[in-house]
């Protein structure tokens, strides 16, 4: 099992840092899956984290100047590691003006992801800062737990409004309530609602547009159906964590709602895709 990689380009490095920062805001621990072409950051839905799950996919060619990996065996040429993304985010904090960043899998006292930063200095020799981030290698028999989640059979798929506005609204609502109802229809409308003993607040977004998924029944919708709202009541902290944590400045942000079951968010930024699933509460 071998893995070594190198980032030289500054914009790639910044972009990679933002992705890692986003992930570290969303989860304490996650699984890093390395394949020949891609890196995946995965959080599977465990009851302990409120049933939230995440799937973030990066294409290695868009970030790394060098990327070599050798999996467990030829047939299963992959590596699965468990790590604390916060550690990686902290290691990259000092990397903003690095000349190069090397990330490799090492075995020091324990398996580590070693991040070596080459920092510029006034003298001819550059300074090297090395971070060893402990990881645990996930054995092959558990790999099945980390399958890509399928896009759920949603009732409504809709583009999200400006995330900044949405974040601000959800932030205030969080001060007032623990739960939020998010509802949307196929006519480009999203409503965010809270209701408590003291106050009820509802925010209405319109003209958002619905993504053109290739769906068999989409064409047969009557006009009445497009106004039908699909809704889910979710933990408002989970939603805010997602809105406040994201730093990828997505070019597209999509929300899929499975009526009373779950909300599924997709953020797309060029080659990065981040999916986030929040289960509905009863």
């Amino acid at each position: 099992m071998r893995f070594r990689s190198k980032i030289v380009d500054v914009s790639c490095l910044n972009h990679f840092t933002r992705v890692i920062n986003t992930i570290s805001k969303l989860t304490k621990t996650c699984t890093l899956r390395l394949t020949v072409n891609n890196l995946y950051f995965i959080l599977t839905d465990k009851v302990a984290n409120g049933g939230v799950s995440m799937w973030c996919e990066l294409s290695q060619g868009n970030f790394f100047d060098e990327y070599q990996m050798e999996g467990v065996c030829m047939e299963q040429n992959e590596i699965f590691l468990e790590l604390i993304p916060e550690n990686l985010s902290r290691a990259l904090k000092t990397a903003q003006n690095a000349k190069s960043v090397k990330v490799k899998l090492t075995n020091k006292h324990c398996p580590c992801l070693t991040v070596a930063l080459e920092l510029p200095s006034l003298s001819s020799s550059s300074r090297i800062v090395t971070h060893d981030i402990p990881v645990s290698v996930i054995p092959r028999r558990l790999w099945n737990d980390f399958k890509e989640p399928s896009v759920p059979e949603f009732d409504v798929s809709i583009y999200l409004p400006a995330l900044k506005t949405m974040k601000s609204v959800v932030e205030r609502m969080k001060n007032l309530s623990n739960y939020i109802v998010i509802e949307a229809n196929r006519n480009g409308e999203i409503n965010l609602k809270i209701e408590t003993d003291l106050v009820s607040v509802s925010t209405h977004f319109k003209d958002l547009g619905n993504p053109p998924w290739v769906s068999d029944d989409a064409s047969q919708n009557s006009t009445q159906e497009i106004d039908n709202m699909a809704e889910a009541r979710i933990d408002i902290r989970k939603l805010l964590q997602f809105l406040a944590g994201q730093q990828v400045n997505p070019t597209k942000a999509i929300c899929n709602i499975v009526h009373k079951r779950m909300v599924h968010f997709i953020l797309l930024h060029e080659d990065v895709s981040l999916q986030y699933f929040i289960p509905a509460l009863a």
């Binding site: 506005t165 003993d197 607040v201 509802s202």
Partner: peptide, 10 residues
Amino acid sequence: GGVVTVCKIH
């Protein structure tokens, strides 16, 4: 910016 919020405070 076209987004409307309705609040009912007891």
